[in-house]
Nucleic acid binder design. Sequence first.
DNA 1: CTGAAAGCGCTTACAG
DNA 2: CTGAAAGCGCTTACAG
Lengths: 348, 348
Amino acid sequence: MIKSNNVSLAEIAMTLGVSKTLVSMVLNGKGDENGISRKTQERVMESAKNMNYKPNQFARGLSIGRSNTIGLVVSDISNPFYSRMARSVEDAISESGYNLMICSSDESEKKEMKLLEMLVNKQVDGIILSSTINSTEHIKNLMNEHFPFVLIDRAYNNIETNTVVVNNRSGAKEAVEHIINNGHKRIAALIISPAHISTQVDRLEGYRDALKKYSIPLNQYYQKVIPRGEIYKTLYSLLVEWKSDSMMPTALFVANNQLAIGCLEAIRNNGLLIPRDISLVSFDDIDLFRLYSPPITSVIQPINAIARNAVEILFENIKTNENSESLPKKHKCLETNIVIRNSVLKLA
Amino acid sequence: MIKSNNVSLAEIAMTLGVSKTLVSMVLNGKGDENGISRKTQERVMESAKNMNYKPNQFARGLSIGRSNTIGLVVSDISNPFYSRMARSVEDAISESGYNLMICSSDESEKKEMKLLEMLVNKQVDGIILSSTINSTEHIKNLMNEHFPFVLIDRAYNNIETNTVVVNNRSGAKEAVEHIINNGHKRIAALIISPAHISTQVDRLEGYRDALKKYSIPLNQYYQKVIPRGEIYKTLYSLLVEWKSDSMMPTALFVANNQLAIGCLEAIRNNGLLIPRDISLVSFDDIDLFRLYSPPITSVIQPINAIARNAVEILFENIKTNENSESLPKKHKCLETNIVIRNSVLKLA
DNA sequence: CTGAAAGCGCTTACAG
DNA sequence: CTGAAAGCGCTTACAG
């Protein structure tokens, strides 16, 4: 097997006739604090550059126990919400010379656990996780080890970790209030499986909050969990069912962008028109919502802010972790923004 | 600084009263070939599991020179084309226990070079690159070192590396032929900057091929490079300009999905209707195209196949690299698929 | 100002 | 069947 033909510290030291120690110190910017003469420092710097020295990260990692990479695990990196999140995280950490390892859990508990284990195993310096798991055991394990760690997007309330989430409940409530204020009473809420995910739970709660506030009775028939594997099919049948029962809601509150895409197709293929036949408000924001006919009113999450906050907290923890201190857990809850477009009909 | 409280090989060896060598062999599945007794092997396995042994990857990497991670650098991971690509790559490599390090170059040459250097430096086992750079020097450097490497999406023709691309030229030609066959003659082509990127060059060539084939004169006025920083603004002005010059094309061939999004908005905000006032065909495929009114005819790239092929080639190279052999470079060119929807007007 | 040496935790000839 | 030992390339007390 080929070892990269890289020069090592030893070679630089050799050609300069100094010790590895000295070279290492200089290259790590500890020349001054160790009183290495300026001349020597310059010679080292120059040699390193000339010889195109690249420190071996394995050796370095083995020695100091850090990798300068952080792990991000989300359910699916090809979901625009998460790919934009990943980009924001990447930008936030690359400023500090960190790199990103991105993993998709595919909403599989098994896979997520494996991934997490793998990342810890690979000695990433910290993990940002949007968890799919309906139990907090594996996270507690991570925490036991002082492992720098922050939960984003999806939270648990029975566990004390760093979290950066969005106020899903109030965001959803606001969306549904907007619908109600346009005169609607038969409003259905659609969430995506797995139904235990906090974002979905909270958005459904927000929906209920709004109905209660306006004394609209809750109806199980109008609160559906759509299996993520067959979104379109389920939605299409649901519309057919509602129609034949003469129970068609006048408005839909949709809890996520994938669901919304399925809805738009299912509605269209049922020969229904938004907002004439049915109104719709969705969580998330994607190009499609802005460009659809009609433009879809939606609840925008501050993706960039989520990422920045998560990274900031993670870095604090990485730093204090080096001093084997422990930090009080932080919880950030960011507000969403509703953007009113044209998908809700004003009822007389 | 806290070292993870992990058990080491030595500890397992200790508790079992055997050598580290033995433990290492067994755990790496080389027990049989080294004639370690079944009993001993089982004892080792069990201890490892009980003690929750996780090999230190730095130490392992330092020893064997591999990281089991591969690097993917693209211009922007939040572009749906690349995020879907990333997902496909992730799926393809995770089967083999590899992980993905994803980096966005932001179409900056400097950043791409840094990223590449960093990845090599981090000892990734191979790199998949969609390059933004208008020169092949940095890639030649990588190749000199036998570094497992494959170029995707964007290619260079003056360099001998593994490449997996799509037949952009014929895909574009087919798209434009479709437009022509509907009776159009004033057809504009829009590509995105930087204009030297092979995908954009080739798609423009394909456009020219089609016009030539039907003896439609080429017109510089109808071939525009849109700066990626201000897509919408440029496009909007362009339409205004065409209108005021009474030179409005009857159809647009758009070379990428970001451009198409800008076009749809600019067209709408100019009070134009697709396809009544102007027809449009785009490269790439995103949900929006299918759901737009009217649905947009587009050229679909086989993203998953690109990823699978790239990974396959990369893995071959990684394997032979271990034997310090060198492999003949492979070139894959996959075909695109046009999906006819409703965005091209049939002219009388 | 500078260096010899130990140590990080693996793998792998080599020896028996 | 099994183990002692060297080596991967760094960093970091410690000594002078």
